[in-house]
Design a protein around this nucleic acid. Structure first.
Lengths: 178, 178
DNA sequence: GGATATTACTTCGCTGGCGAACTATTCGCC
DNA sequence: GGCGAATAGTTCGCCAGCGAAGTAATATCC
């Protein structure tokens, strides 16, 4: 249809024959695989950006989710863990690291002393911003392989699918990372 | 434009104001985030499928990549590690586990005794098939939130972007998981 | 043809994350 | 108002994966 083949075209072509006894449609497979590969690509470029600002993956991930919540820069450990899709135990570890680096601050809640409040520090917010900025560049570049109209179409089609996942009452529609 | 808002709509709306001093376009962000969320959803449903067949994530991942290569069911450890995007050290660990479970078989190459050949066993192929089948169901369901024409459009738009990532000469276009 | 480099894989020490058990606090209810 | 259940977070033991060093075989070059 357009110029060349991408990895997925070759993948699907190679496998059309093998999928005889497995429920399989190439167009579904092609879409799922391309989504996976794009995500992976974004992940790789994000990692490059993180190296530049001196941030590890899990550190950025945590700061990012802390910032994009409805109460930016402020959260409880368990709420943040749920957003991130990690266990509470893992959360404790991440917070130890971040607190140690001076990017967040733990403080005990006065009213309910079981609760701990996580707050981003000035330097935490600053380094997150720097990472965001770098990360955005490659994403911009790739997504702008499409023109304005195509981007709008793509966004709408993707949304139709995300709505399907989010409406789905099953447990799999639980919180998911951005 | 369509019925409701998805998570991403709310996310972008919430953040439009905060991104003043960061290079940011909502349409790019919306696309990137939706891709991430769809990938995450597929990952979750795959995991559910894996629980049903009694396979761990890394086991399926390895068997899958072993099967979808140009030489299905046959590979060298390092080639497979490259496909999977993991280190050779990690590969050794995975192969130990898979060999132990009887799903793959290691054998020394006669010509070059540094080389090891990995081959999938009958039971390895069988369990992979079962997992594939289950995994495919949810993916089908979600992707079929779109009609035939929409799927074709989506596939083409995604391909335009994957081509951009794969053409990109930078190191980030290295092999990526499917 | 023998020293040196390269290649293919494995072993080692360490780290992030998980589930389960634990601690401390608050809620609910009679 | 006091006892059992629920809730919030941390500690503990374990596992998968990483980078670096190690081992063994082959390639290269004088």
């Amino acid at each position: 249809m357009t110029e060349g083949e991408d990895w997925t075209d070759r993948h699907v072509a190679r496998w059309r024959d093998h999928w005889i006894d497995v429920a399989f449609e190439d167009d579904v497979e092609a879409i799922v695989v391309r989504i996976g590969r794009l995500k992976q690509y974004f992940k790789l470029t994000t990692q490059q950006a993180l190296v530049e600002v001196g941030l590890q993956d899990f550190e950025y991930d945590t700061l990012h989710h802390l910032m994009i919540r409805d109460t930016p820069g402020l959260a409880s450990p368990s709420a943040l863990a749920a957003d991130l899709g990690i266990s509470n135990a893992g959360m404790t570890g991440r917070l130890d690291a971040l607190e140690n680096a001076g990017w967040i601050q733990r403080s005990a809640d006065a009213d309910d002393r079981r609760r701990v409040s996580i707050e981003i520090t000035r330097s935490g917010a600053a380094i997150w911003r720097r990472a965001m900025d770098l990360r955005g560049r490659t994403e911009h570049e790739i997504v702008h392989a499409l023109d304005d109209e195509e981007r709008a179409t793509l966004a709408a089609l993707l949304k139709k699918m995300t709505l399907a996942t989010e409406t789905d009452s099953s447990s799999a529609s639980r919180d998911v990372s951005g």
